[in-house]
Structure formats: structure tokens, C-alpha cells
Design a protein around this nucleic acid. Structure first.
Lengths: 332, 332
DNA sequence: GTGAGGAACTAGCACGCGCAAGCAAGAGGG
DNA sequence: CCCTCTTGCTTGCGCGTGCTAGTTCCTCAC
């Protein structure tokens, strides 16, 4: 029967009344407001009463009063997100929650005529994987979003950093260590991925040049398009390519599948390395060598960047967080 | 420079002042408040001015004033979610946005000592894939969550419906049509999935019984555990099982991989059918027959259930939405 | 004895919005 | 002509918090 009655929620005023102090005092205690002196007795009595009554601050009221919502909006791209992204987000969410923020994820479906979530959620921070379109930035500014990441004002964004290039570099290094010199790059033909594909492709070419390899033969492979994959394999073979760097594990699987079907043995005739170390990489036959990224570290980095923007907290120096390593399996 | 000045956000009072009407009038127009008569002239002038000034209602203030936040919180389980779940959510989010609600997803990491999101977000509806634990329900009630789905008061929940059983039935039917009679079921050994595995397993056994098949040989296969998969394949072969129904595509891939590695040809010696029609199913060699679910329909159903709870909107009758079909590929 | 100063509070406004209640002016019926 | 009803508004309170500007009381120096 205790929980049966649909009781109004407990407010700070309830605590104050029950204790015979003013509501302001309660507020000062609960917020540890600096510059306020509260006696130890009162402080502990307020905290105990809050606990006893099951007080929960009303987020909407807080947001209204202080003008900040403590919500971080993470805008996910419309394209199929990487496998590791899910774990990143979970970790970031955890780190933000510990700082009193809520992470809300939002997939932007540009076909939609409805108002984007940042206009209705009043987030303190909006984060994206890639820089936002000018129209979106305008809309965020108009809705009063205080912080936009990557910042539209600073062209070189954080996502262009080590997190993108370290994986492709490792892919190339691994193949070179195995003695391969003539490499192919299997891009994804999905137009939505073009920016990321391009970034990884550039990183691969840069690493190849650094190692003094001949030019990398780049071909596009569509997920589900087996004939394109078969064509790519044939072209690479004709071109004397012995190893293929794939944009990600899905593309790697397409290439490996096409190779097997056309009688090209993996890895002896064609080695293949993927990226992301998705579950698929371990399950495929032959299992796929891939690059494993430190999801948790990346997620925490994401959270740190948001907190840096929102509260000026220091950014963790360097990025041992972006640790990546090659997981060698049967395909190389 | 227009956007340079950090201008305060536009409020309904700004519209009122600029037009020389009262703030209430503006509110009535913007909300189409029933029971209020507003002249056509005033109405259009208010709407035009709102548009001109770029007015955005302040969600927090609305939530505070009306006591409802128009937020639907979807609690995702800690376990690896199905591939199709992502598309479901997107579709549900779209449908809810059109009804003026925001869908926020939240992965519950039970290791966390931070307060669950429903305590800080004040959602109107909290939805889960499976019934919530009693402690969680208590916490939601204490935070004043008006609607919990599946409802803790009504034991038979919607998720137990056709959406769970239709896929497994189709799997069995497909194999029976191909002449198989002695079936195996490949469960997932992930303990977090046990409830769903059990539900699908029961559906498979029920369908098998309906078709008059001998008992289904169920074995657990862990993702990444190749030796367990190999053992399962050997056991089934010894048991004269000719076809395996897999819990999902990942498990199907594990089984198929183990079969190939141990020289059992797929599908001639062992047929395998997966579930979910994830991208993996098409990429695997041999490609995997699977059950494709109507993601969009399921997502819209999810949204409809939420709106039904929140606003008493009618539930769409029946469920052609839960349409599922077998996608036949090489593994059967 | 008195004034300064600090500790420990309280009163009350602001945040932006929804909505109940009230009010002026005109329409219509007797 | 008076009364009622409707139209088209306005005034103002309340939602739960944060926080500024006091107010009271007590201590302590001179």
C-alpha cells in the first residue's frame, strides 16, 4: 500500500517543511553551493531527510533555473555504424554519468521533416563524428546550444587525429612484416561512408609511401555486391597484388568470400586484413585478421572531450587511449 | 555578425511583446489550446512572428509546466543487441518524433552505481525489451514515471507475442519443406541472452511437434568458442541430425564454420538456417539462409505501443507489421 | 557599552511556459 | 432597453530550482 498511492514526487520544499528550515538552505546543502556556510548539524539533517524521503531533483526545473540541462547529445551518422561504436558509446555514457551528465544518442535521418533533437532537448553539448553541415550548425546556434563538437570554428577536428590513422597504419605494417609489397585497398562503395573511407585510404597510402611500397591499388567493393567483389579480386590478381587492406571487416569478408568462390586461396594467394575486429572477423572462414581498437579508451576520450567543452575540465594528455593492435588470424 | 552576438533565446514573451498581445494569447495559438477562441488574424500574425523570430519552445519549461516531458526512454539490455534492433529503433524514433515525442535509448550497465537515467530524465514512458526487475520498477515509480512497458501489472507481455515465435516457426517450416526431419537447435551460450534463447527454442520445439518431427537436439554454442561449435557439429552428426536451426545468424555462422573446418559439407551434409538476416548472413561463405524480420514494422509497433500508453492512442490492430520471411541462401 | 564582522540562515525573484479565471465588447433574444 | 451568451482576448498563478540580497544572532575587539 505504500507504493500504491500515486504520490506526488518529493521536492526540496518537502524536505524543508519536514525539517522546519527554508527551501534555500536545502538547496545550498544539496548543491554544496560555494560561498555558503551551513552548520554541520543542519547539513547532515538535510541530507538524511533527503535520503529518507527519496528526494530526486527535478531535472526539468534544474535545467530551467540554471539554463543548462546537463545533457550531451551524440549525433550518430545515418550510415551503418562501426561495430565498436556501440561499446564506445556505452563507455562514454558511463563516464559522463559519473560527471552528472546524461548521454543521449540520436541518429539523424535527414529524410525526416521533424525538428532535430537538439532543438527540443536543449543539450549543453552536441557532438558528432564528423563536422556538421552549416545548416545544422546554424540550427544549433539558433536553439542556443552552447557547445558544438567538433567545433565549427576550428577546422582541424579531433576525429582527424590518431583515432583514424592508427588503424590503417597498423594494417599496412602488418602486411609488410609478412613480406607483402604490392598492396590493394578495398574501399566501401557506400556513399555515406565516403568521408571515412577516404580518410583511411589516405592513411594507408601514406603508410605505404613511408615504407617505400609501390602505389596501392584501390578498388570499391559494395556490401552484398558479390560480382563487384569478384571483379575486384580478379583485377588485383592480374595486377599482382598479394595482400588487400580492407576498409573494415565487412568489406574484408566480401573480398575473402569472392576470393574463395573464384578459387583464389586465402591467405597464400591473397592475404586480407580487416579493421574493427568485429565478431564477424572471428567467425568468418577463414577467420579474418583485423585491427582491434580500444573501445573503452575511445569512449572515455569522447566523454572527456565533452566535459572539457562543457565545464573546462582538462583533456587527458596524449592518447594511449587510442591504443590499437593487430589481431592476427587465418586470413594473413 | 548576425549570428555572432550570443543572443538570448527567443521566448514566447518576445513574440507577445513584438506583436503587442499577451503571452497567453501566444501560448494558445502555438498550442492550439482547445476551448480557446482566437481570431484568424491574430493566429496567423502570431505564427508568422514565431517563424520570423525563430522561436523554439523551451522543453524544460514545458516539461515543468505541464508535468510531462514528451520523452520516451527505451531501455536496452546489457547484452549484444540484435542487428535488426538498430533499424527498429530508428523507425520507432521517427514515428515518435512525428507525434512530438523524443525517443532516448539507454543501455543499462548494471555494474554502474550511478542513478539510472529514468530518475534524471523524467520520461513519460519507459520501455524495455523484457519485463523490468522489481527493484527497477520501484525506482521508476518513486521517480514518478507514469508509464512502464511492459507493464509490471500485466504478466503476459507484448514481446512474448508473435514477434518472438514467428521467426523460429518459419525456420522449422523451411527445413521441413526441404525434406529434413531430424533437426538440431543451436542455442547461444551467452547467459545474458538466455531468456530470448529459451523463447525461440520453445517456439522451435512447438513447431517441430506440430509437424510431427522427432525431438529437436539442442546444443549451446558460444560466440568465439570454436571448439564448442566443433563438438556440437560432431554430436549432431552422430545423432543423424541433417539440419540445424540457429538462434541467430552469429550462432549459425559459428556452426557453419565448425562444419566446414571439420569437413562436413554445408548444406548437403548439414543444412543451417539463421535468424535476423544480418549482413553477416549474406557475406558468409557459404551464405546463410536466414529469417528476415520487418524492422520498420516492428519499430512502428514499438512507437504505437508507447503512444498508446502515453496518450491513449489506438493500437494498430493485428500485426501484419511482424511480417517475417525466409531468405534462402546457400546454407540450406 | 558599542560597533564591526562573520556565521547561519531566510525571503523572494527569475527561469519559460501552461492554463484557470476574469474581463471588455458585441451579438442576439425577450 | 436590459439581460445573457459568445468571442477574443488579458491577468496572474504555479511548476521546482538556483541564487542574490538581505536579516538575525552571536562573538569579540576596543
Amino acid at each position: 500500500m505504500a507504493s500504491g498511492t500515486f504520490s506526488r514526487r518529493v521536492t526540496a520544499a518537502d524536505i524543508a517543511k519536514s525539517l522546519g528550515v527554508s527551501r534555500a538552505t536545502v538547496g545550498f546543502v544539496l548543491n554544496n553551493t560555494p560561498g555558503q556556510t551551513i552548520s554541520e548539524g543542519t547539513r547532515s539533517r538535510v541530507l538524511a531527510e533527503a535520503e529518507r524521503l527519496g528526494y530526486r531533483p527535478h531535472t526539468a526545473a534544474q535545467a530551467l533555473a540554471r539554463g543548462r540541462s546537463r545533457v550531451v547529445l551524440l549525433v550518430l551518422p545515418d550510415w551503418p555504424i562501426e561495430y565498436s561504436m556501440g561499446r564506445n558509446i556505452e563507455e562514454a555514457s558511463l563516464a559522463l554519468e559519473e560527471a552528472g551528465y546524461s548521454l543521449v544518442t540520436y541518429t539523424r535521418h535527414d529524410s525526416s521533416r521533424t525538428r532535430p533533437l537538439w532543438e527540443t532537448l536543449n543539450p549543453d553539448v552536441v557532438m558528432g563524428m564528423l563536422p556538421f553541415a552549416a545548416a545544422d550548425v546554424e540550427s544549433m546556434r539558433a536553439s542556443g546550444v552552447p557547445h558544438i563538437l567538433p567545433s565549427p570554428d576550428v577546422p582541424p577536428s579531433w576525429e582527424q587525429g590518431a583515432s583514424v590513422t592508427v588503424g590503417p597504419s597498423l594494417q599496412v605494417q602488418h602486411l609488410v612484416e609478412l613480406g607483402h609489397r604490392r598492396l590493394g585497398f578495398a574501399a566501401s562503395s557506400d556513399p555515406r561512408l565516403s568521408k571515412l573511407v577516404e580518410a583511411r585510404s589516405a592513411a594507408v597510402r601514406a603508410e605505404a609511401a613511408r615504407k617505400g611500397l609501390p602505389e596501392v591499388a584501390e578498388l570499391a567493393v559494395g556490401i552484398g555486391d558479390t560480382s563487384a567483389a569478384a571483379g575486384a579480386v580478379a583485377t588485383w590478381r592480374a595486377d599482382e597484388v598479394t595482400a588487400v587492406v580492407a576498409y573494415n571487416d565487412d568489406v574484408a569478408a566480401m573480398v575473402a568470400g569472392a576470393a574463395i568462390r573464384s578459387g583464389v586461396s586465402v591467405p597464400s594467394e591473397l592475404a586480407i586484413i580487416g579493421h574493427d575486429d568485429s565478431p564477424l572477423a572471428g567467425m568468418f572462414v577463414p577467420s579474418l585478421t583485423s585491427v582491434h581498437l580500444d573501445d573503452a579508451g575511445f569512449g572515455r576520450q569522447l566523454a572527456a572531450i565533452a566535459l572539457h567543452a562543457a565545464e573546462g575540465l582538462p583533456l587527458p594528455d596524449a592518447d594511449p587511449a587510442f591504443a590499437a593492435r593487430v589481431v592476427r588470424r587465418e586470413s594473413t
